[in-house]
Design a protein around this nucleic acid. Sequence first.
DNA 1: CCTAACTTAGACCAATCAGTCAATCTCAAC
DNA 2: GTTGAGATTGACTGATTGGTCTAAGTTAGG
Lengths: 196, 196
Amino acid sequence: MTRGPAKQFDTEMALIQAMEVFWEHGYEAASLSQLLARMGIGKKSLYDTFGNKQALFLKALEHYAQTMNRHIRDRLLTQGSPLANLEQLLLEWQTMHGQPGSYGCMLGTNIADFNTDDGAIAKILRGYLQQLEDVFCTALTQAQAAGEVSLTANPRDLARLLLCTTQGMALLGRVMEDDTTLKGTVAAALALLQAR
Amino acid sequence: MTRGPAKQFDTEMALIQAMEVFWEHGYEAASLSQLLARMGIGKKSLYDTFGNKQALFLKALEHYAQTMNRHIRDRLLTQGSPLANLEQLLLEWQTMHGQPGSYGCMLGTNIADFNTDDGAIAKILRGYLQQLEDVFCTALTQAQAAGEVSLTANPRDLARLLLCTTQGMALLGRVMEDDTTLKGTVAAALALLQAR
DNA sequence: CCTAACTTAGACCAATCAGTCAATCTCAAC
DNA sequence: GTTGAGATTGACTGATTGGTCTAAGTTAGG
């Protein structure tokens, strides 16, 4: 089939390294030199393999979103009490983004770089956020069915609230010194959800 | 006292223009050319008047934070029902950040550019966010005193939840096409606060 | 073995970045 | 009116940006 030598690097591994740089710094602030250094490959290899910076970013973003959304879906839509699953997820989110050196959520971090005007990429970001909202909504509906959340609450709106809150948590986690803010946030959210 | 001609531009006006650019694009992405164009002044004038890009940003950030924090304080800690005041504020926030072309909150937008490692600026951002949390906490305590919010709720944690949620709203407003997400978020938040 | 397809390293490109400086201009104080 | 401090303009700096391209190296297929 193909002639010549094989690639000297693992494509998927390099993509993950690139994802980490974009995650940490955002699209604009992630320079090619940083990307190349972390990926451990040459400039030409990057352009031959991934196209250009934006194409690489899109692949990295897709990898991040699919991984995270699947993880959250698995955590929420599993056996056991829906509300307890949600509680587990929020506590995990609090721990993950509350520790120093947290980079927040890659979706949120990059929203600043691609506002509504950048049609294409903004649309992709919206899609992933919508997926997240849908998972939350499904979980909340199940919690209502299980009698764990009041039936008077609108699960769709509640899911939107959860989306905003979790994104805000990830964002603030980037700048906060300790996990006080996030711990309080999760405690209050759980208290509100459980009280009826 | 001073000799020579007066400045040909209004310093405070120029600062506000600069603030808008930083607000829209964030610190890193706001280029000097954009700043100069919007401020309508020459490069030398900028450096003579404000120091450098970072000093200009700090002044712009301070102006933004003081204006916004004072506005929110005025809205919340005024006469009338504390909970109704909070409701008014959330609806205003929803309207402001739900419309297309919204730039979100300047604090949140710039968190991505200055993570915990950038000690000085991160500290300033934390300070302004803390002020916001404190105002929320005071308002919630008043709402409890007025019997509008359950006494079992922890006002400090509730304030932290409000902080994360409002920052998340401003962030998502940057990328969302319509105000559906934000409207739902506010509706759910108000329902949870009022239910009791 | 030998060649052609493929990869790689690094020189190179124009554009832009933040920031500086010298020359010019303007006007208030004396 | 003269003078000189302050303001303005635009050319200029070195570094860095994302991206291209040439030349050399490597290895599989015939």
